[in-house]
């Protein structure tokens, strides 16, 4: 039998096997690149990626692009000599608002706030939602029922209204907006991952892992989660935009600190001047919000199409 040939070849083939190890990871990376190429084949996705990249660059290089205001960089520096000046005025490319705050400064530093908001909310809710949904789906039974009824209660209230209520109770501050959104957003992830896990659990490859005798944790880690996360990734990408949209709505209503360089707050601050012809504050801030939400929606939709489980991996 061929089994007897193992020891000799093991000794002589040692270096070859080492190469095999490194090749395994390169095969995996090749596969990932393949998926990435698939995602980037959609031109709209590429547009989204470009916009997101620009926003990221803007957020990272904010202190280089503009001189940070002291002591709080997230309050626009007041130029009391130039109140309500239009775009193109010396030193104020996009104009200033009614307190002399520079609009461009606000948009640049606002991108940092948007990034902070969306990343904090999406990552934390992704973790919470995945844990809750996984526990519910893996355990099943009464616990599943209990957790999903809680999720139902959360889902019954519209996101914006719910977040508004929580933020209002906590008091106006940017941190409370983050908190409020985190409370609202985790349920969707719990729902999605639960459904996916229940689907994957019924597949033959999970049955095959059970026949082999692998532990539940290993099956979850190796089989269930990797095959269940795709819709979650798509939803999370879309929510990177949605969170900023709702966050802007909340600060527009006045649930952020006054004078904050948050885009929604800027739209709100510029609103009073629109009738007087001072359109630039609200418009530029609004465009920033729009572009941010649009970019993540484009990428999210592109991911959904490219990672469709019906076509993936065949």
């Amino acid at each position: 039998m061929t089994m007897t040939s193992i020891p000799q070849s093991a000794a002589s083939n040692e270096p070859r096997k080492d190469r095999l190890r490194t090749r395994a990871s390169s095969v995996r990376w090749a596969r990932r690149r393949e998926v990435l190429r698939e995602v980037m084949r959609n031109p709209l996705t590429v547009v989204g990626v470009v916009i997101i990249t620009l926003f990221l660059l803007m957020a990272i290089t904010a202190p280089l692009l503009t001189e940070a205001n002291q002591p709080d960089p997230y309050q626009s520096p007041r130029d009391w000599a130039n109140i309500d000046v239009g775009p193109g005025v010396e030193g104020h490319v996009l104009g200033t608002d009614s307190t002399g705050g520079d609009v461009l400064y606000g948009i640049i530093w606002g991108s940092r706030l948007s990034l902070q908001l969306s990343l904090t909310v999406v990552i934390s809710t992704l973790i919470i939602g995945t844990i809750v949904g996984s526990v519910a789906a893996m355990r099943g039974g009464r616990l599943d029922n209990f957790l999903m009824r809680i999720v139902d209660v959360f889902l019954a209230i519209p996101e914006l209204i719910f977040a508004l209520a929580i933020a209002a109770v906590l008091g106006p501050s940017f941190r409370n907006i983050i908190l409020a959104l985190a409370v609202v957003f985790w349920v969707k992830y719990a729902r999605i991952i639960r459904g996916e896990i229940i689907r994957v659990k019924q597949t033959d490859y999970v049955a095959a892992a059970r026949v082999v005798g692998d532990s539940t944790w290993n099956i979850y880690r190796k089989d269930v989660l990797p095959n269940a996360v795709t819709p979650l990734v798509v939803q999370a990408t879309l929510d990177m935009g949605n969170v900023v949209l709702i966050g802007a709505a909340l600060s527009y209503i006045g649930l952020a600190q006054a004078g904050l360089t948050e885009w929604g707050a800027m739209v709100s601050a510029g609103q009073s001047g629109i009738l007087a012809g001072q359109w630039w504050v609200s418009t530029f801030a609004g465009v920033a919000i729009l572009l941010w939400a649009l970019a993540f929606n484009l990428v999210g939709d592109g991911l959904r199409d490219a990672l469709d489980p019906k076509t993936e991996g065949r």
Binding site: A24, V27, T203, D204, Y205, A208, K222, N227, G313
Partner: peptide, 10 residues
């Protein structure tokens, strides 16, 4: 269906 699509044969 009985092979995990995300795993290598190894």
């Amino acid at each position: 269906a009985s092979l995990n699509p995300r795993q290598l044969v190894r």
